[in-house]
Design a protein around this nucleic acid. Structure first.
Lengths: 291, 291
DNA sequence: ATGCGTTTGTGAACGTGTGCACAAAGATGG
DNA sequence: CCATCTTTGTGCACACGTTCACAAACGCAT
C-alpha cells in the first residue's frame, strides 16, 4: 500500500488556481507535469540499453505508475505512440525533455553551503539534465572561499551580480530557516523567478514567482502518521467524550482549556492534557517539543 | 508478450486506492495529513511566543494556506476551536501531534552516509519531533567508523540487528541509486515498514510498506517547466504539423522514426530530430543526456 | 438577559485526477 | 487483400480536493 500523494514534496503555492492557470495554459495538467520527469528517467535508462521501443505497459511498470495514466499523460503531449507497437524511446525522450524545458541551459544558484548545500552541489542528477550550478553562496566568512564540488563558495554580497550577469532564474535555498525569507527576497529582487526551498519555512513571494519546497521533517511526519495507523495504534487520548461531542459540553471544555492555558512550557505538560479531562495516559508531550 | 503484473507488489505512491483506504479508515484525507505538519510548525512557533489562541485566518496565513481549507482540515480531527475566538494553540499542538503519532518515539536508521546522509544526520528538525536517529549505516569501509552528528557510522552488516533490537520501523535511504533497491529489500525484510527514499529510483516493496520519495532532480524539472512557460518560450520544435495531426500522416512519421532509430547516442543527435521532419532548430540533445 | 460582532464548522458546487473499458489504428502473417 | 492480434488514445464515471458562503455558536458589552 503506497501513500497517496503523488508529489512527495507538496508545492508550496497551495493556490491551485494559479498553478492551473500556469500549466493549463497549454493544457498539461499539473499532475502530469509532475510525472514527466519520472517517465523521462525510465526512458533514459531504456535508451542507454539501446531499447528502440517500449509499450505503455512496460514503461508504466518501470516508472511505477499504471499504464492508463501514462497513456493519458502522453496524450496531453500529442500522439507520439504507434498502435500495436508502442512508443519510440529516443523520440519520446526528446519530446519530454523539450516539454519540460530541458533542452536549454538552466543556471542555478545555491544559497547556504552547509551540509545540505554541499550535498546538492555534489548531486550528479543536477548537471545531468541541463541544470548548471552557476554559483555557490554563503554568508559565513569561514565558508566563503572554500570549494565544494570543484566550485568556489562566494559571498552573499555577490548574489545580485551573479544572478543578473549569469541570467539565473532558479535559486535553491539551503540556509537555516531564519535566513530563508531574506535570501528569498534578495533572489527575487535580483530577478529569480523560481525557487526551490529546503528551509523549513513558508516563503512569501510576489505573484509570478514559483516556490517548491522540500521538507524532510514533513515527509517523516507523514510516514509516522501511516506507521501509527498500521500499528492499529488509534491515537490514545483525546476522544474523551468531550472532543467529538458537539453541543454545549465542548464549549465548557474549551473554556476550561483557555482558563488553564495562558502559561507556557513549564505547566503545559500538566495543564493541557489535564484540562482536557485527565484522560490521556501517555502525556509525553516532552518528546514532541523538546524545548 | 503481455506483461502480466507490472509489479507484483505495489510500489511508490501511484496507488491512491490503497492510500485512501488507509487514511480514510478513520476519515482523514491524505491531503489533510500532508498539511498537518505545516500547521504544527506554525503552531509551535506561536506557542513559543506564548500566544494563547489563534484564528483560522491568522494560522492559515502563517502556514501559507487559505483559511477555509484549514478549517476543513481541522474539522476532520474534531471540533477543537471556539467560535468567536479561534483555536487554543497549546491544545491544538497536542492534538495534531497525537494524530500524527509524534507523541511516541520513532527510531530511524539512515543508510548511505554520503553528503546527503551527513546532512540528514545533522538535521535539527529530525530530533525535534520525536524522531531519533538509531543508527547510521554505510557499506564503504572508509566511511564506517567515522562519526557524523556525534554518532558512529556502522557497517551495513549490522542493519538487521539494529532494526530488530531497536524496533526501527522507519528507514531513510540515501545511497546511490544502484544500491537503493537492495538496501530497501533488506530493510523491509528486517521489519521496516516505512521508507523515505532519496535515491532517484523507483522502489518496489511488498504490500503494507509505505514509500515516500524525495527527488531533487524532479523538483527542479518541474520548476524548469513553469519557468519555460513563464518565458513564453513555447517548446520550439515539435509541433511540426506531423505530431499533433491525427490520421495516416503520423503513422508514416512514426515508421520513419523507428527506421532511423535503432542506433544510439552516436547518431541520435542527428537521427531523432532529423527523422522527425528536420524541423527542430535547437538540437542540443547533448545537454539533456550528457552520456 | 439581550443583542451585536466575530469566528467556527460544514453543506454544496465545482474543478482535478484516476481508472475502466473499448473502439480505432496499426502490425503481421497468410 | 483480408483476418487477426497488439497497443494506443480517449470518453465516461467516479473519487478526491478545494472553495464558497452561510448558519450556528460563542464572547462581550450593555
Amino acid at each position: 500500500m503506497a501513500i497517496g500523494r503523488p508529489s512527495p514534496s507538496s508545492s508550496q503555492t497551495p493556490d491551485p488556481g494559479a498553478a492551473r492557470r500556469t500549466s493549463r495554459a497549454r493544457g498539461i495538467p499539473e499532475a502530469t507535469v509532475a510525472r514527466l520527469p519520472l517517465y523521462l528517467r525510465a526512458l533514459t535508462a531504456l535508451s542507454e540499453r539501446s531499447v528502440p521501443t517500449v509499450s505503455s505497459e512496460e514503461l508504466a511498470a518501470a516508472a511505477g505508475v499504471n499504464s492508463a495514466k501514462l497513456r493519458k499523460d502522453f496524450s496531453y503531449l500529442g500522439s507520439y505512440g504507434t498502435r500495436g507497437v508502442g512508443y519510440d524511446v529516443e523520440y519520446l525522450v526528446y519530446q519530454i525533455s523539450r516539454e519540460l524545458g530541458l533542452t536549454q541551459d538552466w543556471p542555478v544558484v545555491i544559497v547556504g553551503i552547509g551540509n545540505l548545500g554541499h550535498a546538492l552541489a555534489n548531486y550528479g542528477g543536477f548537471a545531468s539534465r541541463g541544470f548548471r550550478v552557476a554559483a555557490l553562496l554563503d554568508a559565513d566568512p569561514n565558508v566563503v572561499g572554500s570549494t565544494a564540488a570543484g566550485l568556489p563558495v562566494r559571498h552573499m554580497d555577490e548574489l545580485e551580480d551573479i544572478v543578473v550577469t549569469q541570467h539565473v532564474s532558479i535559486g535553491v535555498i539551503t540556509t537555516p530557516p531564519g535566513a530563508a525569507q531574506q535570501v528569498c527576497d534578495r533572489l527575487v529582487e535580483a530577478g529569480v523567478t523560481s525557487i526551490l526551498n529546503f528551509a523549513p519555512t513558508v516563503l512569501t513571494v510576489p505573484d509570478g514567482v514559483d516556490v517548491r519546497k522540500v521538507d524532510l521533517s514533513i515527509e517523516l511526519q507523514i510516514l509516522a502518521f501511516h506507521e501509527q495507523r498500521k500499528a492499529g495504534d488509534e491515537p490514545s487520548a483525546g476522544d474523551s467524550v468531550l472532543d467529538r461531542a458537539p453541543g454545549p459540553v465542548r464549549a465548557a471544555a474549551a473554556k476550561l482549556r483557555r482558563a488553564a492555558g495562558g502559561g507556557k512550557a513549564a505547566d503545559q505538560a500538566k495543564s493541557t492534557p489535564a484540562a482536557k479531562g485527565a484522560k490521556g495516559p501517555d502525556d509525553d508531550l516532552s518528546a514532541v517539543m523538546p524545548a
